[in-house]
Design a protein around this nucleic acid. Structure first.
Length: 147
DNA sequence: TAGGCCATCTGGTCCT
DNA sequence: AGGACCAGATGGCCTA
């Protein structure tokens, strides 16, 4: 595998330096200050944190959503898990935290993949693909060294 | 303006 | 039961 050639594929697409903060896209967020993106801090929603720690989920019956239809097709239970607004907000907070940590991991990975001083930072998919290529190259080199 | 990228929301499923 | 994980949908930002 030609790593250098692979790296060249990313010319013009990569940047070592941080880009200015990018506001979150969704405007119907939970809170007016709920702008973050990967560069923003995760905020807490009143009530949501509490709901995260202690929640009650009602199960009043089944619905008829597309998702349920999909569940039906896959042979899974049709029982719908109904949650309150507060519980949904808490789940959203958890999901944002999860994605935040995922992005932190991506940032860590970006630091480990050698790139040129591009104008843009590596995208997530580029980071993964480059890391895979480098890993393959490393394995190949180790194999040749041993044999 | 189209396409790529990303954050967020959402609901289903998995797992403890 | 409830949190974690996942994927689809949506919409904003940016660049060519």
């Amino acid at each position: 595998m030609d790593v250098e050639g692979s790296l060249l594929e990313f010319v013009g697409d990569v940047h070592f330096l941080d880009l200015p903060p990018k506001p979150a896209a969704k405007l119907n967020a939970l809170h007016p200050s709920d702008f973050r993106g990967r560069y923003f801090e995760i905020i807490s929603i009143p009530g949501a944190e509490e709901a995260t720690r202690s929640t009650q989920i009602g199960r009043p019956g089944t619905g008829n959503t597309p998702a349920l239809a999909a569940a039906s097709l896959s042979g899974r239970s049709k029982r719908k898990r109904v949650i309150t607004t507060v519980q949904r907000q808490a789940a959203n907070v958890r999901e944002r935290r999860r994605m935040f940590s995922l992005n932190e991991a991506f940032d860590e990975l970006r630091k480990k993949v050698p790139t040129f001083a591009y104008e843009k930072r590596l995208s997530r998919i580029e980071t993964l693909r480059l890391a895979i290529k480098l890993d393959h190259t490393t394995v190949h080199m180790q194999f040749e060294f041993v044999h």
